[in-house]
């Protein structure tokens, strides 16, 4: 089985809004060893000019994951999930994620490349807030190992 080359450029349906909870930001912060008061203490976040707790940068993966699930559930991708390894990850921010945000993510398959028998699938998930304004783009390159 090989990755379907016609996936390139495919845009998936926007996800249902994800409401960023304050306690979820705290829970995620602790899990990644974040100690910034802006991610843990509402008063400190407000004193710095934010409306609520500021999520650590990689929190965006929680919302991105909803779109990767769409990709890996698509019937015609030719991607064998058991052969997928996470190659690269990138987050590009317009602004940080803040508790209270309602985020919607839209995945586009940006490219598929072949390298030494493996396929590299690059998926870009653009994440916007309730006002439609861009918050962050999360980009993953998934390496699909070829038959050994």
């Amino acid at each position: 089985m090989s990755v379907n080359p016609q996936l390139v450029g495919r845009v998936f349906a926007p996800t249902e809004p994800y409401l960023v909870g304050r306690e979820k930001v705290r829970e995620f912060s602790r899990a990644v060893f974040a100690t910034s008061p802006l991610s843990l203490d509402v008063a400190a976040a407000r004193a710095a000019g934010y409306s609520d707790l500021v999520a650590p940068p990689t929190f965006a993966v929680v919302v991105q994951e909803l779109t990767l699930h769409q990709l890996l559930s698509e019937p015609d991708t030719g991607i064998d999930f058991s052969r997928v390894v996470h190659g690269d990850q990138r987050f590009t921010f317009t602004r940080p994620i803040v508790a209270g945000d309602e985020l919607i993510a839209t995945l586009t398959v940006a490219s598929i490349k072949s390298l030494g028998g493996h396929s590299m699938v690059t998926a870009e998930s653009s994440i916007v807030g309730a006002d439609g304004g861009h918050v962050v783009t999360a980009t993953s390159t998934l390496v699909v190992r070829g038959d050994e």
Binding site: T35, S36, V54, P56, P57, T58, Q89, F91, P96
Partner: peptide
């Protein structure tokens, strides 16, 4: 690993909102 590796930078700069772009290769 990606999540904690950036924390020393955030502690240095004092605000997670100052991270504009963050990328790694595993």
């Amino acid at each position: 690993t990606m999540g904690f590796a950036v924390q020393p930078v955030i502690d240095w700069i004092g605000d997670p909102g100052r991270i504009l772009d963050y990328q790694v290769r595993f």
